[in-house]
Amino acid sequence: MTEQLAAALAAEEAAIYAYGVIGVHLKDGDEVSRARSAELEHRARRDGLVDRLDELKASTAPAPPAYRLPFEVSDREGALKLAVHVEDGVAQAWRALLPVTEGAERLDALSFLTDSAVRATRWRRIAEVTPLTMAFPGRPS
């Protein structure tokens, strides 16, 4: 499970970094506040993962290569595309935790998978990208 937790941590770190970039390119107040609340959510999850890995006495090094964007972002369109991309990535990371967890821990992983999938749908709607949904959120494509 440590491996999957570390991957989730890397995905959350990447999301936190990405939302910083996304925020710069959004002007609309509603979009900016959505990006901000998403960033706060990812920070809270990141903190939870750090604590959990500490509990398991797992070494969290090496540091994940979070600070690299999958593509260049220079405008609102790119920012929205990046938001969808990072939420999809985070959803994949949490989905991978479902088979290796049970009980409350699995429910948490499912709730984070679901939250990211729903956020990705919201960003697609804002970006006017269709389809808004995918049949298997978090399944590696």
Partner: peptide, 14 residues
């Protein structure tokens, strides 16, 4: 677990 989880998440996105 992953299949059921993806279906749960998908229904939420719907």
């Amino acid at each position: 677990a992953a299949l059921a989880g993806s279906i749960a998440a998908c229904r939420a996105t719907h």
